[in-house]
């Protein structure tokens, strides 16, 4: 079986004289999470809607696993679970009924359907609401059921359009955990978001779009490195005890590839370094070897934000 893929081939979309998407070509392949970023009106949702046949491309083709979504929607979307914007469910139905409808439409075996629905609803922490009418739910609760509907059939490709919209912080965190689990299950997740730290936390790759044009598509670390002022990456570390100035200025700053070190507070430091994954791995090993009580090591959230702001500003 070939790896899951999503491909836009010269995709354009016009609304009257407004060009929402301009000749977008993008191929995403393999099991990974790809963040789809861009400002409001950039064309993110338009792209995702074309991939789910909710709107039609003016030009070009949208392919899922090599199958044209518009020409053969049933085959193309068979392997896709999608959550576009915030759908509403018939208010008189219960989550069990709404998900049974999705299950029936997708041909899940009856014997497995009931168990699968209960498992998926438990995953989005809505078990106690399984047999209550959706009409009484809050926006966040409905969004949880929408996430469950997208995951119900164990799709190999998941298309999510700002999936944490309307969710409280706990709900957002839970959805992020679900996406991380999907990565472990070797799924391809294509996810638009305005939350850069969310993308930084869970995505392996990032595609940025503005004014309907693809600006960049690459690994997250490559994108932040390529577009940062000095070509460097940065990570934020946190320790269980205070870090003294000497450790920062003499020890950490002297590591190979480290360009500068910035104290955030008594236990948090941001380290700027050049190079990609290999250098990042070596830096982590060096920090662990220092035995400074390292409890957290993650790419700096500001790196993606800096890159995003630079790229988007540059296109204005």
């Amino acid at each position: 079986m070939s790896s899951p893929s999503i491909e836009a081939v010269n995709l354009s979309k016009r609304y009257g004289s407004f060009l929402a998407l301009s000749n977008l070509s993008l191929k995403i392949e393999g099991s990974k999470c790809v963040g789809f970023l861009g400002p409001n009106g950039a064309g993110k949702t338009t792209t995702l809607k074309i991939f789910t046949d909710m709107i039609r491309a003016s030009e070009g083709r949208a392919l899922i696993n090599g199958v044209d979504v518009h020409l053969n929607k049933k085959q193309a979307l068979n392997s896709v679970g999608a959550l576009i914007e915030s759908p509403e469910i018939y208010p008189a139905l219960t989550p069990r009924e709404a998900l049974s409808m999705v299950s029936d439409l997708r041909g899940l075996p009856r014997a497995e359907s009931r168990k699968k629905i209960e498992e998926t609803v438990a995953e989005v922490k809505m078990s106690e609401w399984l047999d209550k009418k959706v009409g009484k739910f809050s926006k966040g609760m409905k969004q949880r059921i929408n996430v469950a509907a997208a995951l119900l059939s164990d799709p190999e490709i998941i298309i999510l359009d700002e999936p944490t919209t309307g969710l409280d912080p706990r709900g957002q965190s839970e959805v992020r955990d679900i996406v991380k689990d999907l990565k472990k299950k070797n799924r391809l997740v294509f996810m638009s978001s305005h939350l850069l730290n969310e993308v930084q936390e869970i995505c392996d790759e990032v595609a940025m779009i503005d004014h309907g044009k693809l600006i960049v598509y690459d690994r997250l670390s490559n994108v932040t490195a390529r577009f940062s002022a000095d070509g460097s990456n940065s990570v934020e570390i946190e320790t269980s005890k205070d870090i003294d100035d000497q450790t920062i200025n003499s020890n950490i700053a002297s590591f190979a590839d480290v360009s500068s070190v910035e104290r955030l507070d008594s236990r948090k430091v941001r380290i700027h370094f050049s190079g990609g994954f290999q250098n990042q791995e070596r830096l982590l090993e060096d920090l662990v070897a220092m035995k400074i009580g390292l409890i957290s090591f993650r790419p700096s959230s500001s790196a993606l934000e800096d890159t995003y702001l630079k790229l988007i500003k540059d296109t204005l």
Partner: peptide
């Protein structure tokens, strides 16, 4: 208008 179509249309059905 009610966006219930968004729940259905993104599934593999005509």
């Amino acid at each position: 208008q009610n966006k219930t179509g968004y729940f259905l249309v993104a599934n593999p059905l005509r």
